[in-house]
């Protein structure tokens, strides 16, 4: 694509859980500063791909590179964690239920030996639109949207360059989703972050991303610019079927059919 080193580069990556092949020969390049989307239905391997990059899934073959550096095995060095962070789908499960927000944000700083934690925590809370008043609350005292903001603050507090977003808004109400998506866009614009966004929602992906890959059965079916998808310049039947399905229900079609029914 470009001669610049891609932020993220995957070649022939395979992931297997107990013999089940969750990812099959996935190759992918994400340029620095790009917002890249991964779309697919459940079991398509889109979340597994993110977890493989993060070192949370067993990679059995292939190479992964972050900013040109090859990652080996499931171990990731400290430098990796400072550069790549992740936001999880379920805001109710991704925050430790017995730690205050303060402690959730303090932990990454403590692990990486950062001093002057207090101002950084306050700045991080401020950046995601939560005031200092939230600092000493527990997750159960927060709404889903507020929890997801905390999760984003936690991911950003180490100032990474790449953010992996695993269905960051699918557990949220539509109006809250809009707020969180706006926040993510704003943060990206301010910091020039690279995003890899996983979602089942074509609306969210085309809204957030420049390019996207459609996944099915552990493979990448098609890779295309978001504008092409919107304009209907689609190469495969599977992508077309997804596009039709996400347009909503039509009386008379029984779901098997295509747009021309």
């Amino acid at each position: 694509m470009t001669d610049a080193v891609p932020a993220l580069s995957l070649a022939g990556v395979n992931v297997a859980y107990d013999g089940y092949r969750a990812l099959a020969d996935v190759s992918l390049n994400v340029a620095a500063g790009e917002a890249f989307g991964l779309v697919g239905e459940s079991g398509s391997g889109k979340s597994t791909l993110l977890r493989a990059i993060a070192g949370l899934a067993p990679v059995t073959a292939g190479t992964l590179r972050v900013e040109g550096e090859t990652l080996t095995g499931q171990r990731r060095g400290r430098a990796f964690h400072a550069r790549v962070q992740m936001v999880f789908q379920d805001p109710y499960g991704s925050l430790h239920p017995r730690h205050t927000i303060d402690r959730q944000l303090l932990e990454p700083l403590a692990i990486h030996g950062v001093d002057a934690t207090s101002p950084r925590i306050l700045r991080a809370l401020d950046e995601v639109g939560l005031g200092a008043g939230f600092r000493f609350r527990y997750p159960h005292q927060l709404s889903g949207g507020q929890r997801q903001r905390v999760a984003i603050a936690r991911a950003l507090i180490l100032e990474p360059a790449i953010l992996l977003l695993d269905e960051p808004t699918s557990a949220l109400d539509a109006s809250v989703q809009a707020e969180v998506l706006n926040l993510l866009e704003q943060v990206r614009a301010e910091r020039g972050l690279t995003y890899v966004l996983v979602s089942h929602d074509l609306g969210v992906v085309t809204h957030m991303c420049d390019r996207l890959a459609v996944m099915h059965g552990g493979r990448i079916v098609e890779e295309l610019p978001a504008d092409d998808l919107v304009a209907g310049r689609i190469g495969t039947d599977y992508t077309r079927k997804l596009m039709v399905a996400s347009a909503g229900f039509r009386r008379g079609s029984d779901g098997h059919g295509h747009a021309d029914e």
């Binding site: 706006n182 704003q186 085309t206 919107v230």
Partner: peptide, 14 residues
């Protein structure tokens, strides 16, 4: 507030 393919609105209305 729901993002729809083909409707570019940045930021989304909240």
């Amino acid at each position: 507030c729901v993002p729809v393919p083909g409707h570019d609105r940045h930021p989304l209305p909240v």
